[in-house]
Design a binder for these strands. Structure first.
Lengths: 238, 238
DNA sequence: GCGCACTACGTACGTTGTACGTAACTAGGA
DNA sequence: TCCTAGTTACGTACAACGTACGTAGTGCGC
């Protein structure tokens, strides 16, 4: 009975150990840690079943005892970095707390640049994701809106963080497997953009580019976006 | 001299035709259309170089004359569906216009369910992307904020649309290559979530779930998110 | 203590992106 | 006008991927 299940399966629902047979050599945490280590060092494309198995020191196919599909390995990775969230005691200032949560998410993603790409595609109700969601709801206790609105706030804020951080990181991550640097690629793209603007086909876009002096401060743009999202949920501002 | 360039390259910067040699059999539009057709019918994973070439009726490697890397094929696809934007005459009501733009983006993504996955990763300054950005800036003409703020609005709004639509679509798209339906997978995930909530480990999350009666109206959630983002940029509300 | 569920993992298959080599073709410079 | 250099076309080949399958060994529960 080695076949793969013909029915959907959530890896978190399957018990890590079922009393029978030899003791497993690794825990899920071991496997997740190995995969994260590789992704950090070599990028997400370095995370192959063979490579993770080698990192653990076991045969490739042994991995499939723990992880039925590669996608589940990704879920393990997301859950693993979810543990890096600090889950601090809420201060009573929901805005400040949520801002802190968002900044922390961003920091985690910068530590693990492959995270945005993964999070965009996975539904993700892993244990640590749930704990983080619960933590956010705790921070939002002082906010006087329906619970449903609070989850919408968390979702929207997370989405914005992922999008912004993901975009900021995407070029760097992609450049990893290329024979050129992220700066070089960026320069080429900007040169092309400049050329297009110079054609006069995009007057308003041109004006927007002329307006700014010096390079864009992505950090500030990100922070402004967060503030705006929080504004949109603040009853005192409406 | 068949080697690939050792320097970053933007496909849009390379001329489609350089007077020398035999006439190319296809245009970039042909290729993009073929790839889009396949992705619509079989999902993004169906878009392989071999498959696209077969759809065009040429040898696999001939494709590489037009598209140096597969990633560039993706850029072609994104640009192609960008042409589906309506670029209507701005009405003078920037909120209504931007709402319409966002709804249109969402509609396009629902027509091409692979789009969110692609857009998340690509920097994207394709011709049609630029035209759409210019169109948005035209719609935002009546809004009295700096041009930089306007581009931030467009970016944020687009990010929210992509995130929300992408999440809504992700499960369906993934289920395509699996032996089970999206509904089945969703049911299993929800069952797991219910079980977790029932443990009492996530009291606030549990409360949020008990609060809602019936299934979530994703459409309404999406629309509320849009309104909130627009609110956040509306000077009259601050 | 017996049997069965489980772990371990080597082998093998189908598929992917794409490097490389070769043949055919055509526009510009002589 | 012819020559030649740059293009197009595409078959072959390779390395790497996810993973199905089979077999051997292990140890818990009855």
């Amino acid at each position: 009975m080695a076949g793969r299940a013909a029915v959907p399966e959530v890896i978190w629902a399957r018990p890590e150990r079922t009393g029978r047979g030899p003791k497993p050599a690794f825990t899920r945490a071991d496997i997740a840690a190995a995969a994260v280590r590789i992704a950090d060092a070599e990028g997400l494309d370095g995370v192959t079943m063979r490579h993770v198995a080698a990192e653990l020191g076991c045969g490739t196919m042994s991995l499939y005892n723990y992880v039925p599909r590669k996608e589940d390995l990704y879920e393990l990775m997301i859950d693993a970095i979810g543990a890096e969230h600090e889950m601090f005691e809420p201060t009573g200032d929901w805005r400040a707390d949520m801002l802190r949560n968002a900044e922390e998410t961003r920091a985690i993603m910068h530590r693990h640049t492959w995270a945005p790409r993964l999070m965009a595609g996975v539904f993700g109700f892993s244990p640590n994701t749930l704990r983080y969601l619960e933590h956010c709801l705790a921070c939002l206790e002082p906010l006087d809106v329906p619970a449903g609105t609070k989850t919408e706030l968390v979702a929207l804020l997370n989405g914005v963080v992922t999008t912004y951080t993901g975009n900021a990181i995407a070029t760097a991550e992609r450049a990893r497997s290329m024979p050129w640097s992220a700066e070089e690629e960026n320069a080429v793209r900007m040169a092309y953009l400049g050329g297009q603007i110079a054609t006069g086909a995009y007057p308003r876009l041109a004006a927007a580019f002329m307006e700014q002096s010096g390079p864009v401060d992505l950090e500030a743009v990100f922070r402004r976006a967060l503030e705006r999202v929080l504004d949109a949920f603040d009853p005192e501002l409406r």
